[in-house]
Nucleic acid binder design. Structure first.
Lengths: 210, 210, 210, 210
DNA sequence: TATGAATGAGACTTCATTCAT
DNA sequence: GATGAATGAAGTCTCATTCAT
């Protein structure tokens, strides 16, 4: 993992339906393989094999291994964006804070459970590889921006820097605990989720009194 | 990172003083290199070079690359153990919870700041590599055990399962936020540390009323 | 460049006018690409793209990459044949040797300048690839034959072996110097051309006294 | 062949006798393989195999394939430099021109005959690959410089530009004809060598009258 | 017949690990 | 015991060629 930043993020963006499908197959496969062995140990051949394609097909879409990671991160970001979109509109701001947090965390929990690859992207994009770290694709920071938008609705007067800080803290906390929750059985997952809500609601209440 | 689990954790535990020193040099070097490029991209040659030894010498101490990682994790665990030991004894339990948390987090902050390799070990040992994950060297869980001991002093009646859960949550949260704090400048580090205290004290207060 | 000798030189010789045109477009494209990056680095896709056709279309004309090269060499040979034809007829033999040489070299210079791909074909067909070398498409030897015909007119008594030798020498010398001349600016090109005439006229004069 | 110019020409220059030997083995192997299939088609594995070493050993000496080529060219240049050195001293300038040319060409003929790889280096470094062409390792120009030194002794008044031009022409001509001579049997080789002398002496006589 | 997506052999290169010195 | 040269498996990526549409 010491690649130079690659020229173009994607070799070509798939427009045909068939390409689209192949593209998503590859990303699904990448998610699986990354989730299984991590970014570095994942081989492009393994990803292609999981996607039931040839290695050549993979390289028609992605200029290199790193680009696969970015595309996956981007897809997750989109999906999380949609997830947030379902709340931020109109009445979200009128919900009690605790309900909002609870619902968002439930949705996030479902999302991460359904997308085990997210775990790897979360981790890798923040900690492991300086190359990745250096890139703009910092998933968490982007997710935090979405949260900030919500905070702004609840408390427009808040210092934007403080808002950013708090959002970042929440995202980090929610993410690690989500990941922690997946390390054991379903019961544990539920317990950790409950604690997460507990923790974050307690943390945010003083900043956003209803 | 798909090495077979290695037979023996260490080829030989250093007994001579000189060996001891060489061993620690190697671990220091590993910490540096891991911190710089991550586990996978770190080469055993680079580690040996940083330690100003030969690659052959490295392999006299460690059967393979993974063993270096484990030894480093073990050393960190020891160090954190000592860090906790300074508190858990005697009067720690008599401190107000907030003081205790604050002091422990300060100590932890100093430790992680001084040991950038910890970040990598934390991450890798939890998320990235199943081989590592599968091993008993789960650093965080061990740290959590230390915290549980403290909790047990404060509230002996607490359900042990709940205690374990809460300790795990605290350790995860403290770790990610610590790592988050290191991603920007010193001011940010201080702010995140403050938020971490804030967050955890609020979280624990209900469980351990003074 | 270790293809098996291909069964058939061309998959089909273009007979329709439209095919003819497509065929020549492909050869033009190949010349460009070869000239730019050399034979090995030239990709069939790049050639097709330069010719504004599909890769599939390219493979309808040529069984493999090597065949493109041969077809290009053949086309150059034809063109050079025509170039010679303009001289060899009738009165060419009555010109003073120096005029003849001068004119032929001028024509050759113009040809090579206008066809940068020739340079690559010249080189590759003689030195680089044994596969190519082994084939009958040795451009230079064929050009030499044309020159021999002229020599035979000037001096029918000359030993044919000597004639062949001298012709080969002339062609080699003219070719490298032509190529040398193209490595710098136009002034250099003119100077080298002058030296080439000088050199070859001096060389041939004793064999073909006027 | 579109590599970026590699950082360092050599990974390490061999100083130990054993390294020295291995280094030369590798260069010999490279010469063989290049001579056999050309630069592009030569594989680093084949070179290592010919040298009876592992691919890893090869990469201890050379950062990449291109570096092997350069090292080989450099070695040839050294050898040719020594070859010239035997003449340029003292009395070389007192020899009749024809004797000098004849002796140099004989020596060059022996050298090229004994080093078939030279043919490839000569060709590649001038014509085929733009990447190589672009590099300073233009063998022929360097050889030409050596010839210029001799010319300067014979005719110090000569315009340096003219001198350079003539030297370049001579080197090119000698090189191609030498290569031509190797395309058939020994008899042909002798004949071409004789013609080369003939040609060059005739060419140079007017510039350097005895 | 034309297209260009797909295939996969094979090239270059790295690096964990061994072992002769 | 120490050294570091040597090994070679394995990874990333390219590109000639095929073939479904």
């Amino acid at each position: 993992m010491k690649e130079q930043p690659n020229q173009e993020r994607l070799r070509r963006f798939p427009q045909q339906a068939r390409s689209q499908k192949r593209f998503n197959q590859l990303l699904d496969a990448a998610a699986e393989v990354f989730a299984e062995v991590g970014y570095e140990a994942a081989t492009t051949n393994a990803i292609a094999a999981h996607a039931k394609t040839s290695i050549g097909a993979l390289y028609r879409f992605f200029p290199d291994k790193l680009a696969i990671f970015h595309a996956l991160a981007a897809r997750y970001l989109n999906q999380i964006g949609e997830l947030f979109a379902a709340f931020q509109v109109s009445e979200a701001a009128k919900l009690p804070l605790s309900s909002y947090i609870s619902q968002v965390l439930d949705a996030f929990d479902q999302f991460v459970t359904a997308n085990p690859g997210y775990r790897v992207v979360f981790v890798q994009s923040r900690f492991v590889s300086p190359d990745i770290l250096a890139m703009d694709a910092n998933l968490n920071r982007q997710v935090a921006h979405q949260l900030e938008a919500f905070f702004a609705l609840r408390n427009p007067e808040q210092d934007p820097q403080e808002r950013e800080l708090i959002a970042a803290v929440c995202v980090e906390v929610a993410s690690v605990l989500e990941i922690l929750s997946l390390t054991r059985d379903q019961n544990f997952q539920k317990q950790v989720l409950a604690e997460t809500k507990n923790l974050l609601i307690g943390y945010l209440q003083p900043y956003f009194p209803d």
